[in-house]
Design a protein around this nucleic acid. Sequence first.
DNA 1: AAGTTACTTTTGAAAGC
DNA 2: GCTTTAAAAAGTAACTT
Lengths: 183, 207
Amino acid sequence: MSESSIKIENVVASTKLAEAFDLILIESEFEGAEYNKQKFPGLVYRVLDPKAAFLVFTSGKVVCTGAKNVKDVHTVIGNMAKKLNGIGIPTIENPQITVQNIVASADLHTILNLNAIAIGLGLENIEYEPEQFPGLVYRIDVPKVVVLIFSSGKLVVTGGKSPEDCERGVEVVRQQLDNMGLL
Amino acid sequence: RLRKWQRRIRVSNATERNLAFALSELDRMASALGLPRTVRETAAVVYRKAVDKNLIRGRSIEGVAAAALYAACRQCSVPRTLDEIEEVSRVSRKEIGRTYRFISRELALKLMPTSPIDYVPRFCSGLNLKGEVQSKSVEILRQASEKELTSGRGPTGVAAAAIYIASILCGERRTQREVADVAGVTEVTIRNRYKELAEELDIEIIL
DNA sequence: AAGTTACTTTTGAAAGC
DNA sequence: GCTTTAAAAAGTAACTT
């Protein structure tokens, strides 16, 4: 029934690949790596395998952003570890990878009246400031996600730790709007 | 403890000094914008509530004062845009907006977004447009709302477009430039909005 | 001095300006 | 291009207890 048809747009994950990293060494060995300590404490490295961007820190911790799904996150981090090994930097064997955030989009395929939705969902539960941003911001407790609702019926879900969180978030919105007769 | 006593006096002095500064800031900004006393008093109430809830932490007094004034204008149905508040304040529009959303949430102000209709009287008088044009503008805005042409759009842009159309329909034409200036939007925005309104509401505009 | 808050960077979608 | 949402990482800054 609810083939939520959400599209995952971005997955952010963190992990620890070593006890410490020499970012200056990595910057000189990795093509395209950017490292400006005074600008940001992390080294920025982009890959195109599955597309992703890394933030590498001296502590050995790594942040991976831009992956299109959870599987790619593991693939791309595995590749990263191999590349580090390739330039003589050892890495932790089975790194614990934590998905920190998933951004997804969805479409309700209906034009929406955001003023009516604001009242229906309760002004205390939403943020809608068309002077500042065209989307209505709806924070859901379970699952703990934030949904941006647009008058076009398009949605953006973020804050979820799993694709299921995002899907459930969309369903909560669809259900509530339907119950209020706003769909 | 004499020490504790002195500390309390010191803290109390700082609190009072900060409150006095905030209230003078509110007065200064309200005067610059020519806002009535009721709005200033409403802003002062909002600011005091923010202080009582310790919402000033991590924020500047000027920022909270500007946000309180912005909120008060909306509560009193005489909205000023963030750009107008920014002009008389010492903080950026971005900070005012962010602070407004924060105190609005924490104080549960529960304000609906500004209605384009609330801008009509002020914008029309700024353009020397008579009551007939105002009425026509409001009529257009009501229809626009019913046809879902206002969701997600900036209230000032929609109001400006409605006034632009109404001024033409009433034979009191104002140029896009004139309307754009009093509404604080660009001519491009007026053009985009009025074309959409005219088309969807079947209004013939003869230039 | 410790704690809070916010900002720096990266990623992606939405739609208006 | 900007605006909004979330999240981690390590660092700086400006505050308050």
